[in-house]
């Protein structure tokens, strides 16, 4: 019985790993080998290891268009950083209040925020509004848009996680003389670390990889973000597959690093009823 169990587990391991490698890792291998091929070899689109390694593709991509990629990286980094910071603070506050206070007003606030999860952003009215406020095509407005769009999801995660924090802690703090604000900053906020790791990675990846919203709301060469640089190799340079894939690899690495930091904690933050919508 025991050995049979071991054998099924071993088979499960082997089948799982083989399927994972074939389905999930081969496409990444393909992207990588494409990025270090010569232009001619890359056009064949095969997954064979290149005859000669062309790591200078990466340099060429960075230098392309007067270091456009560097500008794009700067813009994307600023956008991602401020969006994540903004959401960590506002989402935590909103989630806390909505989770702890009951009543008709809170139900209404809660439903309104959740509406944002469903309703798509309307593009032209938003542009018109930004123009009226004279902040269209600015990084500030882009950060505000990202925060607004991702507030519902962040608040939902925070609210679910706060349900697992016992109210006794706050009562104890209150007896010790803490006011509402101190309870939040000194007692609740430090306990939120697990869910914050989840939010940092999900919101960070979402914002850094966003293509659609910067396309509409942050046009202009100086405002370009990393995802829009992919356009360079699709259009004007025609079939420079090697450079396209080198660009893909370069703009994916930061997210890979972020993932390695927070990998183990992504699930932890979501456990404890956090996924309850």
């Amino acid at each position: 019985m025991e050995s049979r169990k071991k054998r099924t587990r071993l088979i499960g391991d082997i089948v799982g790993v083989v399927l994972t490698v074939v389905i999930f890792l081969i496409p990444f291998y393909f992207m990588f080998v494409q990025s270090i091929k010569s232009k001619k070899e890359a056009n064949r689109l095969s997954i064979a290891w290149p005859k000669e390694l062309h790591f200078e593709n990466y340099l060429e991509v960075i230098k392309h268009g007067n270091y456009q990629l560097v500008t794009a990286f700067k813009n994307s980094a600023i956008l991602t950083l401020f969006t994540v910071l903004g959401l960590l603070v506002t989402g935590a506050m909103a989630g806390y209040v909505i989770q702890r206070r009951k009543g008709r007003l809170m139900t209404a606030v809660q439903s309104t925020i959740m509406l944002g999860l469903m309703i798509p952003a309307s593009i032209l009215p938003t542009i018109h509004m930004l123009q009226g406020m004279h902040i269209y095509k600015t990084m500030f407005s882009m950060v505000m848009i990202e925060i607004a769009l991702q507030t519902p999801f962040t608040t939902m995660l925070y609210r679910g996680f706060m349900a697992s924090i016992p109210v006794d802690l706050e009562e104890a703090a209150s007896i010790d003389g803490c006011n509402r604000w101190q309870i939040f900053t000194k007692v609740i906020f430090p306990l939120l670390k697990p869910i914050q790791a989840t939010i940092i990675i999900l919101v960070g990846v979402q914002t850094f990889n966003d293509f659609t919203n910067p396309l509409y709301f942050l046009p202009g060469a100086a405002n370009t973000t990393v995802q829009l640089t992919l356009y360079n190799y699709k259009g004007q340079l025609g079939n420079s597959y090697n450079l396209l894939f080198a660009d893909i690899i370069i703009i994916t690495v930061p997210m890979l690093i972020l993932f390695l930091f927070f990998n183990k904690r992504i699930v932890a933050g979501m456990v404890a009823g956090a996924v309850k919508g």
Binding site: R9, G12, D13, G16, V17, T20, V21, F24, L25, P27, F28, F30, M31, V205, F208, N209, D210, F211, Q227, L230, K234, L244, F245, I248, I251, T252, M255, L256, L258, F259, N263, I266
Partner: peptide, 26 residues
């Protein structure tokens, strides 16, 4: 109870790190 689950879970998560645009082109 499989032992390779953290490897598999990470690999399944990888596509999420690449932008939709890049995945689409690839």
């Amino acid at each position: 109870s499989i032992r390779t689950k953290s490897f598999i879970r990470s690999a399944v998560f990888f596509p999420n790190l690449v932008s939709t645009m890049a995945v689409g082109l690839a």
